[in-house]
Write a protein that binds this DNA or RNA. Structure first.
Ligand code: FES
Ligand code: FES
Lengths: 147, 147
DNA sequence: TATAAAGTTGATGATTTTAGTCAGGAATAG
DNA sequence: CTATTCCTGACTAAAATCATCAACTTTATA
């Protein structure tokens, strides 16, 4: 039940954009360095995010990528959907035709419940939440250091 | 975020055992046929279930496998844990040492919330629940046919 | 006790997915 | 024009997944 690096890296990319929001285009190179994501791999990760309409990009000097909407409007459910596709624990949850009698299958119901539980979590968290949590952890760290 | 066949097949195996509980050892061959699981693959799936103490087996003629405890005592969380290991969406949720500053990482917190949400679902469902759901679906099907 | 019936174990292989690399191309600011 | 930056598709190495097979051990029972 592991998420692939696409979902994990991608979430970090968007958190990074939320933290640097409003300062113009953010360089992939900088995101790559800050979030420890190989640059050439990162280049591939942003494609679905652009296609999904949550970030935009500009090439050339002073180029980069940035959030299209405010961080408060972007939910992790959307992010994960764009990067990983359906999060369901089994193919047949999303596509019932794959199993012959999906409506009679009780294990499928379980996987569906799991998917719903995960989606509730992801639906409830926005990029703004992530950014706020991050900042509050940073502050805590500074305080700890002061003591 | 897919479950592997180990978890999916394994759950079906245990549901099958719950349905045929009390009638003595159940043949792997029969489970294989009823649940559409390749016999040779099934043979490997039961090893962790035996090691985990939720089923027992007997070799030779009149052999087979059976549940050690009552279906009401076996939760899916246990089953999935035995067959898939930790269900966490990222390695570092279970093993924080893998990332250098796991306690400062907000994405890790998200993956942890997802794991907890899934575990709540799996913890709340026992084999008895599964068996009951299955039987009630069967009855519904018969009624539909009668109409 | 011989025999057939079952589960057990370890080796092996095919296929698919994942994670990453690379080279070349296209757009943009200055 | 040129340096910079994102874009795209092809490619590859490694890992995970999903089995299959053969040899072996245990057990019931005729
Ligand atoms: S496993 Fe697909 S419907 Fe049961
Ligand atoms: S702690 Fe592992 S990804 Fe952040």
């Amino acid at each position: 039940m592991k998420l692939s690096t696409r979902g994990r890296y991608g979430t970090k990319v968007l958190l990074d954009l939320a933290l640097y929001q409003g300062v113009g285009p953010v360089l992939l190179k900088d995101i790559s360095r800050r979030q420890r994501i190989p640059l050439h791999y990162l280049e591939h990760l942003i494609a679905p995010l652009i296609a999904g309409g949550i970030i935009r990009s500009s090439r050339g000097a002073k180029g980069g990528i940035w959030l299209v909407k405010s961080p408060a409007e972007i939910r992790l459910s959307k992010v994960i959907l764009l990067l990983e596709g359906s999060i369901a624990p089994a193919e047949c949850v999303t596509n019932p035709k794959l199993c012959e009698s999906a409506d009679a299958c009780v294990t499928r119901d379980v996987w569906l419940e799991m998917e719903n539980a995960m989606n509730e979590v992801l639906e409830s968290i926005t990029l703004q939440h992530l950014a706020e949590r991050h900042k509050s952890k940073e502050q805590l760290k500074e305080k700890m250091y002061y003591i």
